[in-house]
Each structure stands twice: as C-alpha cells, then as structure tokens.
Simulated assay, not measured.
Amino acid sequence: MATSTVAATSDDKLRLPAEEKYAEELKYLASVDKGQKPFSWRLSPRMIRTFILGATPADKLDRPIAQKFFGDTSLVERAIVTLASDRGLLLIGDPGTGKSWLAELLAAALCGNSTHVVQGTAGTTEDHIKYSWNVAMVIASGQSHDSLIPSPIMTAMKRGEIGRFEELTRCGSDVQDALISILSEKYVSIPELRTGDNVVFAKPGFSMIATANSRDRGVNDLSTALKRRFNFVTIPIVTNKKSEKEIVLFRTRELMARNQIQLDVPPTLLDILLQTFADLRETAANASNEDQKLESSLSTAEQIGVLEDAILHSRFFGSQELGADTLARSVVGTLVRRVPEDVSIMNKFWHAVVEPGAKKKKDKSWESFTDGGKNALASFK
C-alpha cells in the first residue's frame, strides 16, 4: 500500500488542510497536467481522480501519488463530474464512511482551498450561509461592504471556489431553503445595501459540496426543490476486508505521525480488530429490533478510533508494544456508550461470538483479546 506524503508541516496547526498537507503532490500534478480544466480549476478531472485515488503505472508519472480515499472509482468520477455541472454535490452515507474527507480532497484539488466550511447544526442560521454584520461598525458608520461579514459560502462565491456544507440535514428548513437561490441563481442579494451594489455574484468555478448523514433522515428532510439542485452520491460502508485494512492503516499512520509516535501494529491484532467489527455488524444486521443494536455505527472511522486509542494507551501507559488485551479494552471503551444497554449487548456478543471464536482459533492473541474484553466489561458493573 502506498504511504501518504506529508508535504507541509506546521508547528502551530494541529491539523493541516488537505491542500497544505499534500501541497507537493498538487504542485507536481499541476505541472504535468495537460488535460482540459473546467472553469478555474487547478487540475483536470483526470488528474483530480489520480490525486484522490492514487497513481497507477498507466499514469506514467515520475513520482508516486498516494491513494487517499478508498472507494469505487465510478463514485469519485461521478462526484468530479457533478462539480463541473450546474448542480451541487451531496455526499450521503452512514457516519464514518469518509464523506467529509472526500469533500475536503475534492475542494483541495479543484481550487486549492478546502476551508470554506459551514458546519450544520440545529443552531445554524441563514446568516451562517449568507452574511452577517459587524455590529460595532454598523453603529459607527452604518451598513456597508466594510461592515459586512461574508459567510464561508459567500467567500467561496466571490473567489470562484468550492463551498462546503457539513451535515445539511441537521439544519432547519429555513436554512436549507436559503441554499436554493445560491445553487440555482448563483448570487446573494444584500437588500440592506444601496441598489446597484447589493448583489454578490458567484465567479466561475464556484460550487457546493454538502454532506448528509443517512441516519439523520427524517430529522430535517430536504425539500424537493433543494434535492433538484443536488446530485446525490452515496458513500457505502466498506465491507471488503482488504480495503478496510488499507484505510485503517493509512489513517492510523497519519494520526500517529501527527503525534510523532512510531509503533507497529502486529498483523494478527489488525485482523482481530477487522474480524470483531465484521462480527459486530453481522450481529447488528440479524438483530430483531433497534434495542438489540449498539448505538455505534460500527464504521471504519470507529475502527480507526479504536486502534488509535489502543496505540496511545500502549505508548503512554503500557509496554510500548500494542497488546491484544489493550486492543480489547479500547473496543469496549469506544463502542459502549449507553449504560446499561450497550454493556448488555456487548456482554452477549463477547460470550456468544468472541469467546467461542477464540477457542476455535486456539491463538494466544485471541485468548488475550477475549480476556481483555471481559475485564473491560466487568468494570461497568
């Protein structure tokens, strides 16, 4: 598997945006890109696909390009094509499937800026996606362009870049409706300003990437009018063990590099983690009702969280080596959120699935994993 190339570092940024992190890759790809670029895009659609999915020998590039998103090629291509059209892009899927990561990579490759982001919540208002005012300046000299505070979306419109809207369905209908004019008319009116200077038009290259959690359906359903302004791309849960293994290793190595920690993950323990999540998903799929399922979505992102937690615990409080018992404690600690509901569900799973499976394998790592999980569950009593 290709490893990531961290092109930019910073002592004062906890997390670098994709355009900084992969700056060298993006600069190189732009220098060899001879493809047609829509609007003001920095890369052609083919080169954007290469940046996201990684280079192959057929690309005949002089340097490796790491794969950053592990998903269906056609899914990524459809997302890129959508952004070259008049429609916005809506990435929808379960929590932890990589929707936000794909949105960030797309924005970084298209316009070199993935930070025009609005985070959707129940408290998000129309001001967050259009504009607000500097109250002190308005009191002192009235409403003007100087006292106007543009939203990240308006800033993206002015620059002809990508605006991102996270968790769209968590917002109320009034906020969602405010997007309709932006997506269809491509401008924002500012009635408080004098006529002739009260409209902000989107420059070529502007588009919207929104994400929506499929588990939030019914919270604030999108109107038919807004749905027509988006192309929907569904990001599925990764069920292929090989792909999931690559994702977990790729993201965990990045997180550990951020913490300047070097600790190998034994292949046996990674297989145990993948198998445990696969068994948990199967158990959840066979459950007769929601009360018999863990609150966790059991996503790949949660596997990464479990592994990161176990590595950090081993590094700071263990023997500097990742052990199966520590991994088990991290699984339980991460996935048990409701007490006593999730404790009961996990207890049944551990005794009905993990323990019998470990006995069949007759492997010391599985035995240690089983015992570690039992001890972790016992601490909830």
Rank of each mutant, 00 (worst) to 15 (best):
78 R>V: 12
110 L>V: 15
104 E>T: 01
161 E>C: 05
143 Q>G: 04
112 G>H: 00
69 F>E: 02
89 L>R: 06
166 E>N: 13
102 L>C: 09
88 G>E: 11
82 T>I: 06
119 Q>V: 15
115 T>C: 01
176 Q>T: 12
128 H>Y: 15
66 A>K: 09
135 V>Q: 07
93 G>L: 01
100 S>H: 03
81 V>N: 10
141 S>V: 05
87 R>M: 13
119 Q>G: 09
67 Q>V: 14
176 Q>W: 04
152 P>L: 06
143 Q>A: 08
153 I>P: 08
169 T>Q: 14
171 C>D: 04
147 S>E: 03
147 S>T: 15
147 S>R: 02
81 V>K: 11
170 R>E: 12
83 L>I: 05
124 T>E: 10
145 H>T: 07
107 A>C: 01
92 I>V: 06
89 L>D: 03
114 S>N: 09
152 P>I: 03
136 A>C: 02
142 G>R: 06
85 S>A: 13
118 V>A: 08
163 G>C: 11
132 S>H: 14
144 S>A: 05
67 Q>K: 15
100 S>F: 04
159 R>F: 04
83 L>G: 02
80 I>W: 00
128 H>N: 11
72 D>G: 08
120 G>R: 08
135 V>D: 04
170 R>S: 11
66 A>F: 13
146 D>A: 09
77 E>P: 15
143 Q>P: 04
114 S>T: 01
173 S>N: 13
87 R>W: 14
104 E>I: 00
156 A>K: 14
148 L>K: 01
117 V>Y: 09
87 R>P: 07
162 I>Y: 09
168 L>H: 03
135 V>S: 03
